[in-house]
Write a protein that binds this DNA or RNA. Structure first.
Length: 991
DNA sequence: AAAGGTCTATTTTTT
DNA sequence: ATAGACCTTT
C-alpha cells in the first residue's frame, strides 16, 4: 500500500461474508469482492485456514495466482510473516511466471521477450516476415506494434497461427462462392481485405516460427504454449492436476480466455478453485481480458458457491455514494447489476468538483490545494493525483516543481532525466564523432566552458568547411590538440574512449567514462534512482541481450528501443513517503490514498476517445459473447470507478471548463440524481496565475546549482529556450520547407535554421536525393539531344547509389530501397523515354524579394509549354498524397507565385510526380491557395521576428533529431529533498 | 441536413 | 498519417 491503510486492519475480526469465504472447504468458489472490501486479506486468511484445517495439505498443494509480480511479492511476504514452513511453501505466481516455469521443465533454454524486445526481435528480421502491403520503406518498423498487439490478442484467445490461417482460408472460400454476385467495387474491396488478411496470417506464422527457432517466446505465447502442453501431454497434466489441490486467483475479472482455460485444466481434478475479483474494476480489456470472466467461471463451474463482499472499509460513506452512483450506470454490463458497497465509515466530507479554465489552471489549483493541506498537516503523505493519460500530468509536473512540492511520478522513463541524457550523449559522441546533436549537448555542460556564441561559431565553421562540429573545434582552436583547453580536453576524452571502445565491453567503457568524468553521486542525490536504473539497463543489456557487448550494438539496440516506445522505468519508490504520488489510474489499481485528485474529467480525455486497433481481432474467432451497450464507455467508466474508490477521506475532481471543453459524461452520471449530487460540492477555481514566458522554467538554474560535480548536467535546454539566438539576416530568407518546419515546431526551426545545427540525414532523404539526381541526369542528357537507353539510366542510378554510400545500419532497408527505386525509375522511363524534350530548366533556384522577406526555392524541373507559358514539375518519393491535398500544397503554390511574379513566366500547369505511383498529378493552384500560401509565409515571418520559438510537441517528434535537446522531453531536475541532501563533500575537479 | 473543409490530438499496461 | 470533432458552406 502506498499509504498506511485507512481501512480494515488485520486486528478487526472478519465479517460474516469474509468468514464464509475463508472457511469454504470443498468445490469451486467465486468471491465477488468490491473495492476496499478486504479481498486480499480473504485470500491470505483462506490459505492459512486451509493449512490449519487440513493437516496433510502441503504448501505446494496450493497455488495462488496474481497478475503482477508486486502483488505476488506482497502475498509471499504476508504468508512468510506467519512463520509456518507450509505457508512459506505455498506456490505464489503470476500467470506468466507459472507458465514460464511449466515450459522450462520441458525446454530449459526458453526465454521470454517482453513487448519491446519482441519488437526489436521482429525489426531485425523484417525481411523474413513476408511483408508487402504492410511494408513502409521510410519507416520499416511502422506496423510492428500493430502486428505484435494482434498476435498477442490471438494468443489471449487461444488462436494459433494455424488457427488463424484456417480462418482466412474460410474467408477466402466464402469470397470465392460469392464473388460473382458482388458489385465491382465491393468485390475489389473484399479482395483487398483478403490480401491483407493473408499477409497478417503469414506474418503471424513467420513470427512464431522465428521465435521458436531462436528459443524465444512472448508473454502471450508462453500462455498459449502452456495450455497446449497441458492439453496434449497427459503426464504433465495429471502431475499438475494431482498436485494442485487448491487454486486461488486474485483479480479474476482481468483473466483472458487463455488464462481461464489454463485454470480449467489445472483445477479439473480437485475442482477446488477460488476466483476473487470485482467485475466493476475490470480495466484491461484492451490487453485481452475477457468481457465476461465471471460469467465464464459460472458456466465452467456450475456447482460453485458465490459470495459477495460488500462492506467497504476504505472510504467514507459520501464518497462511496458517489462512486456507487457512477458504476450503477454500467448496469447492463455488470455481473450483478444490483451490487452496492456498504459503508462502514462515517459520512465524511463532501466530494469536491472544481471547474478550471485550462491545463495550467488545473495544475495551479491542485498545487495550491496540496500546499494548503501541507500547511495544515505538515506532510504530503497520503495524497495522490490520478489521471487517465500520462500526457495529462505535464502541466502539473511543472507547477509542482515550481512550487517545490515533492512528488513521485510513476511510469516516468529515466530517458527524460538530464544526467542520463548527458551520459547517453557522451556514449553517442564516443561512437560517432560526427554526431553533432550529441556534441552540442556536451558543449552546454559547464565543465567544458563553452558558450552559446561559441557553439554558433563552431556550427558556422563546420558548415563552411563541410565537416562535423568536432572537426570544426579542431580547426578553430588548433591548441585543442594538446588538450590544454577545456574543449581540447573534451575531444581528447572522446577520442581516448573511442579508441578503447573496440576492446572494452559496454560496461567497462561506461565505468571508464564515469571515472574520467569524476561523476560522484551521493546516495541521497535526487538523480541517483534514475542513474541506477540506467546503469541496470546497460548491465542487463550486456549480460542478457547483446551479441558483441560493444557500444555500437548497444546504441543500435537503444535506437530501436526508443522507436518501439520503450521506457526505462524507475523502480517503485517505497522510501519517499513524504511526497505526492502522481500516476495513471491504471497503475493506481489496488492502491489506496487518504486524499485523491482526479484530473481532466473531460470529454475525449476521460473517457478517452474511442480508437480501434489497425488489426481488429475477428468477432468470428471470439469464444465468448459480446457485452451489450457501448463497451468503450463502460470500460472507461470502470476505470473512473477505480479512480474514485482509491480515496479514503477526500476526493477532488477537476474538470476543464474552457470554451472548447466539454465535461466528462461521468460527471453527468454522478450529478444526474439530485440526492447524490448533494454529496458533491461544486466550485469554480480562481483564474490561473500568469504563466512564465514560453517554455521557460525559471528555477532550473537554481535546481542545477546543487549538482555542480562532474562533467555532466548540460544546460542545452536553457540554451535552446532562453539563450541568445544568432542575429537573423534581414530581409528574412524563407523557403517552403523553412515555413513548414516553423509551422510544425518553432523550436525545431530555431535549432535547424537559426542555430543552423544540422540534424542527421535520414534514409528517406537520401533515397529522395538519389532519385531526384538520377532523373535530373536523365533530363540533362535528353536536353542535349542524347537519347538515354534503359541500361544507361540504370547505370546513372547505380552511380548515384555508389556516390552516396549507405551510412545507415539497416541493410534490409537499403536493399529494399535500391530495388524499389530502380523499379520506380523504370516506370518513369516507360513514360518519358519517347517523349519530346521541352525542358527549360532543371533544378532552377530562385530568390524572390517579396514584401519584407526573400522567398527562396529550387524547382526540380520547368518545361516550356509556349512563349512564356511553363509547366513546373516537382518529383516526390514516398507515400503519394491524394490529388485534393496536393492542390493545396504550400510548396507548389509558392513556386507558382514565384514563377509568375518574379521569373516572368506564365505557369500553366503544376505537376507533382510521385515515383511510387508513377502517375503525375497536374493542376493550376487557385488564386485563393496562392494567397493563402503567401499569407502563411508572412505569418511565419512575424512569428520568427517576434522570437516565438516555443516547442510544439506532437506526432512529428518521433523522427525529430532535436528531441535529444528538447525541453518537452526533459524533466526539470528534481528539487533536492530538504535537509538530508548534504552538498558534495569534496569539490570535484573539472577536467 | 448533408457535404466538405479545417483543426487538433493521437491511451491505458503486465508478464 | 489519420481519424474524429467541429466549423462552414450549400
Amino acid at each position: 500500500m502506498a499509504s498506511p491503510p485507512v481501512g480494515q486492519t488485520e486486528i478487526i475480526p472478519l465479517n460474516a461474508a469474509q468468514r464464509t469465504a475463508v472457511e469454504h472447504l470443498h468445490g469451486p468458489l467465486l468471491v465477488v469482492a468490491g473495492a476496499g472490501t478486504g479481498k486480499t486479506r480473504v485470500i491470505i486468511e483462506r490459505i492459512l485456514y486451509l493449512l490449519d484445517t487440513i493437516p496433510e495439505l502441503q504448501g505446494e498443494n496450493i497455488l495462488a495466482i496474481t497478475y503482477t509480480n508486486k502483488a505476488a511479492d506482497e502475498m509471499k511476504a504476508r504468508l512468510r510473516r506467519r512463520g509456518d514452513k507450509r505457508a512459506e511453501d505455498v506456490g505464489v505466481y503470476t500467470f506468466h511466471a507459472f507458465c514460464y516455469e511449466l515450459l522450462r521443465r520441458h525446454d530449459e533454454a526458453v526465454r521470454i521477450l517482453d513487448a519491446i524486445d519482441y519488437w526489436i526481435f521482429l525489426r531485425r528480421r523484417l525481411d523474413q516476415l513476408g511483408l508487402d502491403i504492410f511494408k513502409r520503406l521510410a519507416e520499416p518498423g511502422r506496423f510492428l506494434n500493430a502486428f505484435r498487439e494482434f498476435f498477442s490478442r490471438c494468443q489471449d484467445e487461444l488462436v494459433s497461427p494455424a488457427d488463424y490461417a484456417r480462418y482466412v482460408e474460410e474467408l477466402a472460400a466464402a469470397f470465392e462462392k460469392e464473388k460473382n454476385l458482388l458489385a465491382e467495387d465491393e468485390r475489389r474491396e473484399r479482395e483487398e481485405e483478403l490480401r491483407r488478411q493473408w499477409e497478417l496470417a503469414r506474418a503471424y506464422e513467420a513470427a512464431e516460427r522465428l521465435l521458436a527457432e531462436a528459443k524465444r517466446t512472448t508473454f502471450g505465447g508462453s500462455l498459449l504454449a502452456a495450455v497446449k502442453l497441458l492439453e496434449s501431454n497427459a503426464a504433465v497434466r495429471e502431475h499438475y492436476q494431482d498436485r494442485l489441490r487448491y487454486i486461488l486467483v486474485d483479480e479474476f475479472q482481468d483473466a483472458n480466455i487463455a488464462q481461464i482455460r489454463l485454470l480449467e485444466l489445472l483445477a479439473a481434478k480437485h475442482q477446488n478453485i477460488t476466483a476473487v475479483g470485482d467485475d466493476d474494476q475490470a480495466i484491461y480489456r484492451f490487453r485481452g481480458a475477457s468481457y465476461a470472466s465471471f460469467r465464464l467461471f459460472a458456466r465452467l463451474f456450475p456447482n460453485r458457491r458465490e459470495i459477495t463482499l460488500a462492506h467497504n472499509y476504505r472510504s467514507t460513506a459520501r464518497l462511496l455514494r458517489v462512486a456507487t452512483e457512477l458504476i450503477a450506470q454500467n448496469e447492463k454490463a455488470r455481473f450483478d447489476p444490483k451490487k452496492k458497497l456498504i459503508p462502514t465509515l462515517p459520512p465524511g466530507e463532501k466530494v469536491r468538483l472544481v471547474e478550471v479554465e485550462d491545463a495550467a489552471a488545473e495544475a495551479a489549483h491542485i498545487a495550491s490545494e496540496l500546499k494548503r493541506r501541507y500547511e495544515r498537516t505538515g506532510s504530503y503523505e497520503g495524497s495522490a493525483v490520478l489521471y487517465r493519460a500520462h500526457l495529462h500530468r505535464n502541466a502539473l509536473v511543472q507547477a509542482l516543481t515550481r512550487a517545490r512540492i515533492p512528488f513521485v511520478v510513476r511510469g516516468l522513463s529515466v530517458l527524460t532525466n538530464t544526467l542520463v541524457r548527458d551520459l547517453l550523449a557522451y556514449l553517442r559522441a564516443i561512437e560517432n564523432p560526427r554526431d553533432n546533436i550529441a556534441l552540442a549537448r556536451l558543449l552546454a555542460i559547464p565543465a567544458w566552458q563553452a558558450t552559446p556564441e561559441m557553439l554558433f561559431e563552431l556550427i558556422q565553421r563546420a558548415q563552411r568547411e563541410r565537416t562535423s562540429l568536432a572537426a570544426a573545434i579542431e580547426s578553430l582552436h588548433p591548441a585543442v590538440r594538446d588538450q590544454q583547453t577545456p574543449l581540447g580536453a573534451l575531444l581528447g576524452l572522446l577520442a581516448e574512449l573511442r579508441r578503447r571502445a573496440a576492446e572494452l565491453s559496454l560496461m567497462e567503457l561506461f565505468d571508464l567514462l564515469l571515472e574520467r568524468l569524476e561523476l560522484r553521486l551521493l546516495p541521497a542525490d535526487p538523480d541517483r534512482p534514475s542513474f541506477d536504473a540506467f546503469v541496470a539497463f546497460l548491465k542487463r543489456w550486456e549480460e542478457e541481450k547483446s551479441q558483441t557487448r560493444r557500444l555500437a550494438e548497444f546504441l543500435e539496440y537503444l535506437d530501436y528501443f526508443e522507436e518501439a516506445d520503450g521506457r526505462i522505468e524507475l523502480p517503485e519508490d517505497r522510501e519517499r513517503r513524504d511526497a505526492v504520488q502522481l500516476m495513471t489510474v491504471h497503475s493506481a489499481k489496488g492502491l489506496e490514498f487518504d486524499s485523491v485528485f482526479v484530473l481532466r474529467l473531460n470529454h475525449n480525455e476521460f473517457p478517452t476517445r474511442r480508437r480501434n486497433p489497425l488489426f481488429e481481432f475477428p468477432l468470428a474467432l471470439m469464444k465468448e459473447e459480446h457485452p451489450p451497450g457501448d463497451f468503450h464507455i463502460q470500460e472507461e467508466r470502470r476505470l473512473c470507478y477505480v479512480a474514485l474508490t482509491r480515496a479514503g477521506r477526500r476526493l477532488d475532481l477537476v474538470t476543464l471548463a474552457g470554451e472548447r471543453q466539454r465535461a466528462s459524461i461521468f460527471l453527468e452520471d454522478i450529478l444526474r440524481d439530485a440526492r447524490v449530487a448533494r454529496e458533491v460540492e461544486q466550485a469554480r477555481a480562481a483564474p490561473a496565475p500568469v504563466e512564465p514566458p514560453a517554455g521557460a522554467v525559471p528555477e532550473w538554474e537554481a535546481l542545477f546549482a546543487a549538482r555542480q560535480n562532474g562533467a555532466c548536467y548540460s544546460r542545452i535546454v536553457q540554451w535552446a529556450t532562453q539563450g541568445p539566438v544568432p542575429e537573423a539576416e534581414e530581409p528574412l530568407r524563407l523557403s517552403h520547407s523553412d515555413v513548414e518546419t516553423y509551422l510544425k515546431c518553432p523550436l525545431k526551426y530555431k535549432l535547424a535554421h537559426r542555430w543552423k545545427l544540422p540534424g542527421a540525414a535520414t534514409p528517406a532523404m537520401l533515397f529522395g536525393k538519389i532519385m531526384h539526381s538520377s532523373v535530373a541526369e536523365f533530363w540533362r542528357a535528353r536536353r542535349e539531344q542524347r537519347p538515354v537507353s534503359r541500361e544507361e539510366l540504370q547505370h546513372i542510378y547505380e552511380q548515384q547509389w555508389r556516390q552516396s554510400g549507405w551510412p545507415f545500419r539497416d541493410a534490409y532497408q537499403e536493399r529494399e530501397y535500391r530495388s524499389s527505386g530502380w523499379e520506380q525509375l523504370q516506370g518513369f522511363y516507360e513514360r518519358h523515354a519517347g517523349e519530346p524534350v521541352a525542358v527549360l530548366e532543371l533544378e532552377k533556384t530562385f530568390h524572390w524579394p517579396w514584401q519584407d522577406v526573400v522567398l527562396t526555392g529550387r524547382m526540380d524541373q520547368v518545361n516550356r509549354l509556349g512563349e512564356r507559358a511553363v509547366e513546373i514539375i516537382e518529383y516526390k518519393t514516398g507515400q503519394p498524397r491524394p490529388a485534393k491535398k496536393v492542390e493545396k500544397d504550400l510548396q507548389l503554390a509558392l513556386y507558382a507565385a514565384a514563377a509568375e511574379q518574379h521569373l516572368g513566366w506564365v505557369p500553366r500547369r503544376l505537376t507533382l510526380y510521385n515515383f511510387t505511383v508513377n502517375e503525375p498529378i497536374s493542376f493550376l493552384p487557385t488564386e485563393r491557395n496562392v494567397t493563402r500560401a503567401l499569407d502563411t509565409v508572412l505569418r511565419v515571418a512575424d512569428g520568427i521576428r517576434a522570437g516565438d520559438f516555443r516547442a510544439r510537441p506532437g506526432f512529428h517528434c518521433r523522427y525529430c533529431d532535436y528531441q535529444r535537446l528538447c525541453p518537452e522531453y526533459e524533466q526539470p531536475p528534481a528539487a533536492a529533498p530538504a535537509g538530508d541532501a548534504a552538498p558534495p563533500t569534496e569539490d570535484v575537479q573539472k577536467n
